[in-house]
Design a protein around this nucleic acid. Structure first.
Length: 251
DNA sequence: ACCTATGTTGATAC
DNA sequence: GGTATCAACATAGG
């Protein structure tokens, strides 16, 4: 489920319950999740330290550590979530990475799909500004260019960080913009409206628990209808992802 | 059994 | 450089 809203909730969870606890051991044996680190490498770097801060840009989280230790980066991938001081997963194999604290508790990256990621000193240089933080000028400049479909543009993490497939559909629906419009053809006022719709969609999703609480999302299925006008939604692949939109209201 | 689908990204080719 | 496609992973469902 993890798009920006889910990751923000995960970050807040860690900020509230994962900081300032001394790390006694690290379960970093999944060499795919922890690539390019060798097993034991993350552990060696973090044992004895504490997480000091919980930060996020888009879908990437990172944590500073004390005593000049390296930052720890976490990404939830396609199905990851954070569990703090919870019992082990029903399938123990789904716990892909964990910090074990001296106090007996633990912070776990729980992920059926194994596309989550744990890494030291994460490289954030390829990310655009956070989708909820981009200024109006920044947004106009970065989103309003290129020939790619608008939806592909806003999902490009180097353009804007944090928008995934569901949030993109929800946002474009709220903004009344068709996903296939070439991004560079939008008027400045349309870009401003898109930014407003995006910020509102993010705010609502964070408050209500995730992108799946969006108004359009339950209708993303065959026979689904526009929540506003009742028109049957159209489906196509845009930017490589399944896309649903209202052909009547999104132009 | 086989096919499709799924919130992620990253590598590759044009 | 921008854009498009496929692959990585593992699971669920028709």
């Amino acid at each position: 489920m993890p798009e920006l809203p889910e990751v923000e909730r995960a970050r807040a969870l860690i900020a509230a319950g994962g900081l300032n606890r001394r790390i006694a051991a690290v379960a970093d044996r999944d060499s795919y999740v922890c690539r390019p680190h060798a097993p034991g490498e993350i552990e060696a770097a973090l044992v004895g330290r504490r997480l000091l801060s919980a930060n996020r840009i888009g879908k990437t989280m990172w944590f500073e550590t004390d005593d000049d230790g390296p930052d720890l980066g976490l990404h939830l991938g396609m199905a990851g979530r954070i569990a703090i001081d919870e019992p082990p997963a029903e399938n123990a194999g789904w716990d892909r990475f964990a910090l074990h604290f001296e106090d007996g508790g633990r912070l776990v990256l729980r992920d059926k799909r194994r596309l989550g990621r744990a890494v030291l000193e994460p490289d954030l240089s390829g990310l655009g500004p956070d989708a909820a933080e981009a200024t109006r000028a920044e947004f106009r400049d970065r989103v309003g260019r290129g020939t790619a479909p608008l939806k592909a543009r806003i999902m490009d993490q180097s353009v804007l960080a944090g928008v995934g497939n569901l949030l993109a559909d929800e946002t474009l629906w709220r903004a009344g913009l068709a996903p296939l419009r070439p991004a560079g053809a939008l008027a400045p006022e349309e870009l401003d409206g898109l930014r407003r719709a995006l910020r509102a969609a993010i705010r609502d999703a964070v408050r209500r628990g995730g992108v799946h609480t969006g108004r359009l999302i339950p209708e993303r299925r065959w026979g689904g209808r526009c929540p506003a006008c009742g028109t049957e939604l159209r489906r196509a692949t845009v930017g490589g992802r399944t896309t649903w939109w209202c052909p009547e209201e999104q132009t």
